[in-house]
Amino acid sequence: MRYLLWRAGTLILTLWSAITLNFLLPRLMPGNPAQVMLAKFKGKGNMGPQAIHAIQVMLGISHVNLFQQYLQYWVEIFHWNFGVSYTYFPYSVTSQINQALPWTLILIGVTTVLSFLIGTGLGILSAWRRGSRLDIVITSIFTFASSFPYFWFAMIAVFVLAFTTNVFPDSGGYASQMVPSFSFPFIASAVYHSILPALTILVSSLGGWQLQMRNNMISALNEDYVLLARAKGLPERMLAISYAARNAILPSMTSFAMSLGFVVSGAILVELVFSYPGMGNLLYSAVSNEDFPLMQGIFLMIVVCVVVANFLADVLSVVLDPRIRRGGSGA
C-alpha cells in the first residue's frame, strides 16, 4: 500500500511536470510562436474574445508575468479549453481531438493488443525451441522488421496491396462518400479501411515483444526452480507455460500496460501514410500548418494518457508480482 501511495505521488508529480513542460516549450522557443500565431489568426475572420483569450493564455502572449500566465494556463486546462484550432478555424481544439480520438483508439488499441499477444506467444515459442530452425527464422525476420522505418514499410504496402493490386483501399478511414454513423455498411467500410494500416503496424511492432519475451524466457529457463521442476518429471509443456513463461512475462506485462498509454499518440507516421483520420494525422497537420494551439492540446492529451497508463502499469506489476508488494518503496 505504501508503495502504491508513493507511486501515486510520482504520478501527480510527473503529470505536473509534463503539463508544465507543455506550458514552457512555446515560451522558451526563440521567435515567439505566440505572436506569429495571433497574427495568422487575424486573417481568419472574427473570433470571440473568449477564444482569443484562450489562445493568449495557452501560448503565452499576455503581458502579465510568467507566474500569472502559469496560473491562467492551469485554469484553462481544468476547463478543458485549449483554444481554437488555426487549421480548422471555427472549430475548437477540443472538438478536433474528440473527432480524431476514437479512430486512433480503435485502430491502434486493437493492434497493440494483438501485437502483444502474438509477439509474446512467438517469444515463448522461440525461447522454448532455442537454436532450432524455427527460432532462428522467427528471430531474424523480426529483428529485421523491427528496424524498418515503419512508415516506409507502410508506403510499400500501399503500393503493392492498394495501388497495384487494389486488394485494399489506399487511404482514409472509411469510403469517402459515406457519412460517419453507427450503421453496418459504415462500420464494415471502416474495418475494411483499417486492415492494411493494422497489418503494417503489426509487422513492425511484433518484433519488440518477441525479442523481449525470448530474452526473459531464456533467463527464466535457466533458473533453479525450472531445473527442479524438470527433475520432478513435470511435463515439458507445463514447465514452459506455468513455470518459465509465467515468471518471464512480468516485464512484458509492464511494457504492455505502458504501451496502452502510447495508443493515444497514434502511429503518427502510419496514419500519415494512409491519411487515416486519427490523432497522429491530426498532430501532423497541426505541425505542418504551425497550428500551435492544436499541437499543445494534442500533446497534453498524449502526455496525460501515457502518465496514467504508466501508473496503471505499476499497479498491475504490484498485483502480479508479490516481490514488489513486499519490497516496500524499493523498486
Partner: peptide, 10 residues
C-alpha cells in the same frame, strides 16, 4: 514516460 516521437515533433 513522455512519448518520444510526439515530443520530438513538437
Amino acid at each position: 514516460v513522455i512519448p518520444g516521437l510526439p515530443l520530438m515533433i513538437i
